[in-house]
């Protein structure tokens, strides 16, 4: 698997994602600067966590309009896999690759703690290394993770088996306890929890590792 991690000004989980991907894939992962207009040939693009552009205007708003994102959108439409974690999920909703929006947490506080998730579907290249219904622990660290979408969109996501993960202890007010969703073609996943921060025992957990292993398989 060839993978790249996009680096925006303000990304702060880009190197964690690189470490997790390299451990799974056993080969170097390229870092691509947001100002580049073209992606190198790749099978997977990771949009990492962080606070791109200081969350100016809306989280992910500026990053989703950066030069490299036009090529990421084109790549996603060709079937290249795209994984957006935390701020990366916000970027994916802002650029229209995923429906809905991520609003300020219902409790207004920045939430930084481990959460418990349930795997809702294994029908994706990201989640096919889990069992359906498996319960995972991963950290969240965000101020704007409150998933919102119109009722029709929520129904469609559930009906098409596109909800990848739900919180069992909803930390932010997300509708339907949604923690991660897939696009229609199932090659784009956005999720607020951080699998890259739960991919090595020294980090306190390994429940995220199966996601990177599945992508590398």
């Amino acid at each position: 698997m060839k993978a790249v991690v996009i680096v925006f000004p303000g990304s702060n989980c880009d190197r964690d994602a690189k470490v997790a991907l390299e451990a799974a894939a056993g080969r170097p992962v390229a870092m691509v600067w947001h100002g580049d207009s073209e992606l190198p040939p790749t099978d997977l693009v990771v949009l990492p966590g962080g606070f791109s552009y200081g969350d100016y205007l809306r989280p992910g708003a500026m990053a989703s309009r950066s030069p490299v994102m036009q090529d990421v959108v084109r790549a996603a439409k060709r079937g290249v896999r795209v994984l957006g974690i935390c701020n990366g999920f916000q970027v994916l909703t802002e650029c229209g690759l995923l429906p809905g929006a991520l609003l300020r947490n219902a409790g207004l506080r920045f939430v930084c703690r481990p959460v418990t998730l349930r795997v809702e579907t294994v029908r994706s290249p990201f989640t096919n290394g889990y069992r359906r219904g498996a319960v995972l622990q991963m950290p969240v660290a965000h101020h704007d993770g409150n998933y919102f979408a119109e009722p029709a969109t929520l129904e469609r996501l559930a009906g098409e088996d596109r909800i990848a993960f739900r919180y069992m202890d909803n930390p932010n007010g997300s509708l339907g306890d949604i923690a991660g969703i897939l696009n229609e073609r199932r090659n784009v996943l956005g999720m607020m929890p951080h699998p890259e921060r739960a991919a090595d025992a020294v980090l306190g957990g390994t429940d995220g590792r199966a996601l990177f292993d599945a992508l590398a398989a």
């Binding site: 205007l57 809306r58 708003a61 309009r65 909703t93 429906p99 809905g100 929006a101 919102f148």
Partner: peptide
């Protein structure tokens, strides 16, 4: 439409 507002919300 393209930047200043997010029409979803």
């Amino acid at each position: 439409e393209r930047l200043l507002a997010n029409p979803v919300v």
